[in-house]
Simulated assay, not measured.
Amino acid sequence: MAHCFSCGASTRTLEQLLELIGRMDLMVTPTTDIVTPLENRLLIPLEHIEIDDELIGAELPDFYKRTFLHPYLQERGFIFDDYEYFPVGTTGKLNLRYADYVIFPVIDKGVTVGHAARHTWPKTDIDRYNRKVKCSGGYKILRYRNSTDNDFSKLLYNYDAIREGATDTVILTEGIIDAIALTRKLELYDNPYISVVATFGKKISDVQIFKLQSKGIGTVVIGYDGDAVETIKRTSERLKPYFDVFIADIANAGKDWDEMSEKEIYETFAYRLMTPIEYKLKKVQERCRENS
């Protein structure tokens, strides 16, 4: 029997408890033979999984020039060290396709393999403009304009910051701005043991897992947005067979890392760093409180 004194939820059987926390894979059924030893061949994958991590070099947009000062980035908290460690540039009006974007090169083993461009207008202004052109005709503004040379499921932003043989821990974020913000606020620029990388979204691919493994990473901290509860659960399950996994549970689900203060970030990693099972149980408790 299990009972939560916080929310009052109770379970009376092992099956009920495992179902509640989403771990029915731990259930031993009456038909399971737990006496006969497993044959070694059952522990070996039947098929060898090929990981296609091959990348090609990519050109940055025409007229791209690196910048060390930009109003949009200043508003996002960029300081000199950010410009120094994370190359970013613009094309200006010379390339109308990228005229109002900041462009972040994606570098892998010293080679530019793509770029991620972010429009500098606020999201509300972009949405307002797109509603107008939908009625009057015209081209919509894309918030993000990324390269197509390589599939982004094969890329990790800031991958070269991971030092093989030294870096043990990586913090995963969804986007570039969050990765840079965490590096700045945790002062990880020259830290050889911990790096922050972005997965370009809430999912992680086999190739990205392989790339982390190939650098000798032992611990992964998932730092995705606080409102992505189910995605975080799935991602943690994907990572568990390969790494020691922790989840940085952001107290205010509506905030991104770049919107949080240094104090809020340190408190997250000091008091709200959880194992996947702790994270699941906490979210069950929160759901019970909301429904009570």
Rank of each mutant, 00 (worst) to 15 (best):
H3F: 09
C4Q: 07
F5K: 15
S6L: 11
A9F: 10
E15G: 06
L17K: 13
L17C: 07
E19F: 13
E19Y: 13
L20R: 05
I21H: 09
G22R: 03
R23G: 05
D25M: 09
V28D: 11
V28H: 14
T29F: 15
T31S: 05
T32Q: 15
D33H: 03
D33F: 11
V35K: 14
V35D: 08
L38M: 07
L43H: 06
I44H: 15
P45Y: 12
I51G: 02
D53K: 07
E54H: 13
L55N: 03
G57D: 11
P61C: 05
P61H: 12
D62Q: 07
F63Y: 05
F63I: 11
F63V: 03
Y64M: 07
K65P: 08
R66A: 04
F68L: 11
F68E: 08
Y72V: 13
L73D: 00
E75L: 13
R76Q: 04
G77K: 01
G77Y: 00
F80T: 14
F80C: 14
D82H: 09
Y83K: 09
Y85T: 13
P87H: 11
V88D: 00
T90N: 04
T91Y: 02
G92Y: 01
G92L: 04
L94A: 13
L96G: 09
R97L: 15
A99D: 06
P105M: 14
P105R: 05
V106S: 04
V113I: 06
T120M: 10
T120I: 09
T124C: 05
R128V: 12
R131Y: 15
R131P: 11
K134L: 15
G137R: 13
G138Y: 06
I141S: 02
I141M: 06
R143H: 14
Y144I: 14
Y144W: 10
Y144S: 04
N146M: 12
N150L: 03
F152C: 08
L155M: 10
L156E: 01
D160H: 04
D160C: 03
A161Q: 01
E164C: 11
T167I: 03
T169H: 08
V170G: 01
V170W: 07
I171A: 01
T173E: 00
I180R: 00
A181L: 01
A181C: 06
L182W: 00
K185S: 14
L188D: 00
Y189N: 01
N191P: 01
Y193C: 10
V196H: 00
V197S: 00
A198K: 00
F200A: 05
F200P: 04
G201Q: 09
K203N: 08
I209G: 01
I209A: 02
Q213W: 12
K215L: 12
V220E: 02
V221C: 10
V229C: 13
I232Q: 07
R234N: 15
R234Q: 15
S236V: 04
K240R: 10
K240P: 03
Y242L: 07
V245T: 03
F246S: 03
I250V: 11
I250K: 06
A253V: 12
G254P: 12
G254R: 11
K255E: 13
E259D: 14
E264S: 07
E264D: 06
Y266S: 08
Y266L: 09
T268K: 00
F269I: 11
Y271C: 02
R272F: 07
L273R: 10
T275N: 05
E278C: 14
K280I: 08
L281M: 08
K282Q: 05
K282Y: 09
C288D: 13
C288W: 12
E290I: 05
E290W: 05
N291R: 12
N291W: 09
